[in-house]
Amino acid sequence: MNLAPFLQASRYIDHDHPAVRAQALALAQGSRQEHDLIKRCFEFVRDQIKHSWDHRLNPVTCRASEVLQHGTGYCYAKSHLLAALLRAHGIPTGLCYQRLSVGDEGAPYCLHGLNAVHLGDLGWLRIDARGNKPGIDAQFHPPQESLAFVVRGSQERDLPDIWAEPLPQVVAVLERYDDVAQVHAHLPDVEQMD
């Protein structure tokens, strides 16, 4: 697999933005190895950037630099920031999605955004910095995945691909609505997969 697309700066994963680069450098201080640096970036986004819906925080953010500036983002936006911080250090990082029930079970469904990081010794590992709370305990523990959510229902899925850029339906929702409640009412989804 060509890893070059997973290192590039882009409109949404703008690791070339001065504030993103500065935060990436700050997180690298005292880091001795790649796994430690990844864990620092992961825990910063997981713990210091508030999940927009959990905390009912506006504005709605999409670009990594916006997420960093405002300190909040939906899972999708938080994954854009984590990708930017890691790409700023030359660590290939992609975007992944799960299709999950919005409630405890059954329709409606929505996408959940997370990341995959390429660890030279292990290959791709999914990591989920959406933010912990009671019932959610995502960690960085290679080689095991420790994600926020487990796929349970028959219509829930781990989407198998790793994307270099966010899915269009995710960006469309984040850029269309100005309030976190509007986003929550229009969460992006994909067609049912058999």
Score class of each variant (00 low, 15 high):
H70F: 11
R87H: 12
H55D: 10
W53F: 15
S79G: 08
F140T: 00
G103Q: 07
A28Q: 11
T72K: 06
S154K: 15
D54K: 08
Q182N: 07
G135N: 10
W53N: 14
R87D: 02
G153K: 02
V170Q: 01
D158G: 01
T93M: 05
A185V: 07
A4W: 07
P143H: 11
L159W: 10
W163F: 11
K39C: 15
G106I: 01
Q8N: 07
E175D: 13
Q29N: 12
F6H: 02
D158Y: 12
K78C: 01
P143M: 04
R126Y: 07
K50F: 13
Q48M: 11
E156M: 06
V180H: 13
D54I: 07
F149N: 06
E175T: 09
D47K: 01
L119R: 04
Q23E: 15
H186C: 09
Q144E: 14
A116I: 00
W124A: 01
N2W: 06
H15G: 00
S146V: 14
Q155D: 15
L37N: 02
Q29L: 13
R130F: 08
Q155A: 13
R11V: 11
P92C: 03
Y97Q: 05
V102E: 08
D121S: 13
S52N: 02
R130C: 14
A88W: 05
H184M: 10
A4P: 00
R176W: 10
L119N: 02
V102G: 04
E34A: 11
L114R: 00
L95Q: 01
G73Q: 03
A185H: 12
L95P: 03
A185D: 14
A83I: 00
L85H: 03
C62S: 14
Q155H: 14
